[in-house]
């Protein structure tokens, strides 16, 4: 489904991603592990197309020059130069890190905005699905999103991406700053999302909470791929085990 080949990204002269290759197949949950500055978010933003936008913005501002080389293929087509809005229509939807919601809008409005690329009836149906997935959100539907707790905002943020009807869902550190119980809730939701046939690429610094649900995992360090494999294979690597599983 998603094929990343030899993707390198420079922020001016700094190498953020070094010849990175990665695959996500249909119906899979793929984990992407790495510490801060490993290049996880850069990879996510490039797949979602935000890097393209940032590149143009920085060029105009005379800021850092961003160079992207390599290929990003989605269902056989090269999407490296496809604008982010088109990618959403094609089914690649990113949930950025730190629960990005529209703070001044209510939960319901947030979900409705996210259905922008879809028809009204479809949006309504999908919003109901989101409420089924996160029953907790139902009683918050008229509350302002900025006043929700971190966990509630994260549920909303994931819900928003689902309304956009993704086929490949990119979750950037969805468990960041959440309690263990709330983390469990999100991980359970990820499993449910996979059941709907949506492939997920998820990044985390700490692999343990999402370890049970991932089909395969990749480990990155300083923009470079260190190792990859099924969850069990990763666990067998002692260095990976101590760094990302805390064991």
């Amino acid at each position: 489904m998603l094929k990343v080949r030899n993707l390198s990204i420079f922020y001016e002269n700094a190498l953020a991603l070094n010849s990175m290759s990665l695959d996500v197949n249909a119906g899979e949950i793929v984990g992407l592990f790495g510490s801060n500055s490993a290049g996880k978010t850069t990879l996510m933003n490039t797949v979602a197309g935000l890097t393209l936008d940032l590149k143009i913005k920085e060029e105009r501002k005379g800021g850092e020059r961003i160079t992207v080389t390599g290929q990003v293929n989605f269902e056989g087509a090269d999407i490296l130069n496809v604008p982010p809005s088109h990618r959403v229509a094609q089914g690649i939807v990113l949930c950025r890190e730190r629960h990005p919601v529209f703070r001044d809008s209510t939960v319901d409005e947030n979900l409705r905005i996210s259905g922008y690329t879809r028809t009204r009836a479809e949006t309504r149906a999908r919003i109901n699905q989101v409420y089924d997935l996160f029953p907790h959100l139902v009683r918050l539907r008229h509350r302002r999103a900025g006043l929700l707790s971190g966990g509630e905002q994260q549920m909303l943020a994931i819900g928003m991406t689902l309304v956009a009807h993704p086929r490949l869902l990119l979750l950037d550190e969805p468990l960041l700053g959440l309690s263990p119980a709330m983390q469990g809730e999100i991980v359970r939701a990820m499993k449910d999302i996979r059941q709907q046939g949506i492939a997920i690429l998820v990044t985390e610094q700490y692999a343990r909470p999402i370890f049970p649900v991932i089909d395969r995992g990749y480990v990155m360090e300083n923009g470079t791929l260190i190792t990859s494999g099924t969850g069990m294979e990763l666990m067998d690597n002692p260095e990976v085990k101590s760094a990302y599983f805390g064991m």
Partner: peptide, 9 residues
């Protein structure tokens, strides 16, 4: 081999 532009002082 592709080229990128490098900015140096």
């Amino acid at each position: 081999i592709t080229f990128r532009k490098e900015r140096l002082d």
